[in-house]
Amino acid sequence: MKKYASFKIAIVAGLGLATMGLASSASAEMASGQVLANTCFSCHGPAGHSVGAMPSLAGKDGEAIKFLLEGYRSGNLKGTVMNRIAKGYSTGEIEALAGYFSSQAK
């Protein structure tokens, strides 16, 4: 999952240069992996360490997380709420999420 992380850093750095001195609304169009992941913690636990029935995501294989989220998004995989959630994320965002969770300690 290293490649996602470095990809993200490259984007952020690039945007930082491009938007320097511009209004805040012109900042990064895509939220960072951390910001995207923050909302997942409400069900999947702090930093992806689930306390209850939802699966933990921290330290899981990034490719597997990507496969699951894309499967829920396309409908190839049937979940309960995750089909409805996954449809709200782009491929880039799914990769950033996979990058974030796979880089967390189990």
């Binding site: 910001v35 923050n38 965002e93």
Partner: peptide
């Protein structure tokens, strides 16, 4: 500069102890 927001909401409700329903949205 502040970042771009992106968040989700899921509200579960129990109809009984064994019967749950939900509504969700990504923002």
């Amino acid at each position: 500069a502040p970042g771009t927001p992106k968040f989700a909401n899921t509200c579960y409700s129990l109809v009984s102890a064994d019967y749950g329903i939900s509504v969700a949205m990504v923002y």
